[in-house]
Design a protein around this nucleic acid. Structure first.
Lengths: 352, 352
DNA sequence: TTGTACGCGTTATCAG
DNA sequence: CTGATAACGCGTACAA
């Protein structure tokens, strides 16, 4: 691992010139520049980021804070952030909270403040007030990918509209007894997003004149497992009360719903329609109708915004950007509501 | 962001003493140590990693190189590495190759050599010779999680034995026409692992006196989508030739197989048994029988090994560790081979 | 036990 | 266009 002096010596110039040449600064004659570049390359020289960071105050690295890398949304967003960063020659420091509330403290009060990063991307999670202050104490640009977080800009779809659209798809198919399979539960993912999505469900139901009482919402913890168990209970309701449509707040939960339906001997979509949100990589094989969002793109956009701000002249704190696009993707898991017969429709009998 | 001098000033001691106190070095009276600690804490002081790195030559960070973070195995392993690192107060630098062979060069020849990390964890992937040299040129400890990589220690299950066990499970249930759904395809994940697994399949088939001709192996690219399409074609074979059991090289592919079977109108496990490898988080909801491996644990172990070596006195390059455990997890996707009738068994008729 | 002073590898400032 | 040289913030021999 050669240092800059060695390169300078070999090239017969000063370290200053080497530095200038390598960084593309002006004020170096083309001939020397070429020579230095060639020699540096031949020697395999790469500047030490510690030294460069110390001297410039910029680390060429940004941090990504995630509750857990395992989940589809997070893994995808990380991928997107990374893609953008790598393209701009920035490094990516990953801070995972690891699912459990463990070591959150360590992360917030030690790791992240080590002046190792120039900015932070926070992936959709609930933050305590304490943590929020810690974030602001960083005095670094922060951007959230996922849901609104107080006092931070965020990149995300319009969650409320997304679920409204999903619900309306079912309503448009004639469904009246619809259940919202909401997320929220174990780790800190729950916060504004579940609320917004619940609101979107309510919007659509109300606008259609359909009831959305407490029975119309069940919780699935954002996992297929948990959702499957929950939905199994719901499908156990008497035929007249049993929903004909399910709006899951994530595809992973929708998968659980699909499997629960299969085990209950219900046909999809003849007996039950299921729509999710995400367009998870498995949605296709499952034939799941869903609202697509693109966390990879969101991650890219967030990183680009952050970098733009960092490299910008400074005083342009970039306003809150508009929401990401979402889109209904129709597959095989949704269809017309089953015919209502006197036997199953309860009070509401269709006039022949 | 206070610097060490400010802490020193406030505490009325020299920066040397502050440094010693904070790093737990001996030679500081308990009273001063406590005072310094309290003040540093109150001021929210954290040493700059650039400065510390420059001074000590150690960055307190290790790199994790992954082909893509999206896949279950990788996401899990990252989680494991992170867990161990965080516990030991190391940072984690993520280098994702992002699926496509893009920017591999950049990563290998620039990012990683920036003297930002103290060691590297490589997650299961094929490396070109050039890249392998670049790795060794790092002059840093490297460990692989996944499959054997030439000249590197690695942490992984015994892939050959794992697939052998999976195949034997099916054989034990009376299956004779078994197909191996192998991985390998798009991105650089393919290399020694697919080969080892194919060998394991061959071992078991041969030992049972069953044929494992070219027809017995099909490829699924490690994705559910691709596997589903492939298996659909296989299940299209004439009833007498159609396999009664499938050994998938990953759970994601097994999911695809399951869905293909469902669409083909085949019952699982009555008509078709499917076994996977991984124990993916969805394996439970799918009722998939599989060979469990624990990439989180593998990641933790790898990181622990690396750190041990880094913090060890040095000259103990830690030998190649033994394989990780794997374990058969029986669920509902495997069962006795269907009865052979004259109509379906082809040449091989069971004596009544 | 404590403080002084130098070095870590680069970048930036200012002469030349 | 180029070269000294002073920071950058911290760790650590060495001296006290």
């Amino acid at each position: 691992m050669p240092s800059i002096d060695q390169v300078a010596a070999r090239a017969g110039v000063s370290t200053a010139t080497v530095s200038r040449a390598l960084r593309g600064r002006s004020g170096v004659s083309p001939s020397t520049r070429d020579r230095v570049l060639a020699i540096a390359d031949a020697m395999g020289y790469v500047a030490s980021s510690s030294a460069a960071g110390l001297a410039t105050g910029r680390n060429m690295a940004i941090g990504v804070l995630v509750p857990v890398v395992h989940r589809w949304f997070f893994a995808s967003a990380i991928e997107g952030v990374d893609r953008q960063l790598r393209a701009r020659d920035y490094d990516l420091d990953l801070y995972s909270l690891g699912g459990h509330g463990t070591n959150r403290d360590r992360v917030f009060h030690r790791s992240m403040l080590r002046k190792r990063i120039d900015g932070l991307v926070v992936l959709c999670m609930a933050l305590t007030d304490d943590e929020l202050t810690a974030l602001h104490a960083l005095e670094q640009p922060v951007i959230v990918v996922g849901g609104p977080v107080e006092g931070c800009r965020h990149i995300s779809i319009d969650d409320r509209a997304a679920v409204r659209d999903a619900t309306n798809h079912l309503i448009g198919l004639g469904h009246e007894r619809i259940v919202h399979l909401a997320g929220g539960g174990s780790f800190g993912i729950e916060f504004s997003v579940p609320r917004l999505r619940a609101a979107g469900f309510g919007d659509a139901m109300e606008a259609a004149g359909l009831g959305a009482g407490p029975e119309a919402t069940v919780f699935g913890d954002y996992t297929a497992d948990s959702a499957k168990a929950t939905v199994a209970r719901v499908l156990d309701r008497a035929p007249g009360t049993r929903p004909t449509g399910i709006v899951a707040s994530s595809d992973e939960m929708a998968f659980g719903a699909l499997l629960a339906a299969a085990e209950a001997g219900l046909r999809v979509p003849e007996d039950l329609s299921v729509i999710g949100i995400d367009d998870h990589e498995f949605a296709g094989v499952f034939g799941l109708t869903t609202i697509r969002q693109d966390p990879v793109a969101a991650g890219e956009r967030a990183a680009a915004l952050l970098l733009g701000e960092l490299e910008g002249d400074g005083r342009v704190p970039a306003a809150q950007p508009g929401p990401e696009a979402h889109e209904l993707v129709i597959r095989r898991s949704t269809g017309p509501a089953p015919m209502l017969t006197a036997a199953t429709s309860g009070a509401r009998v269709q006039p022949a």
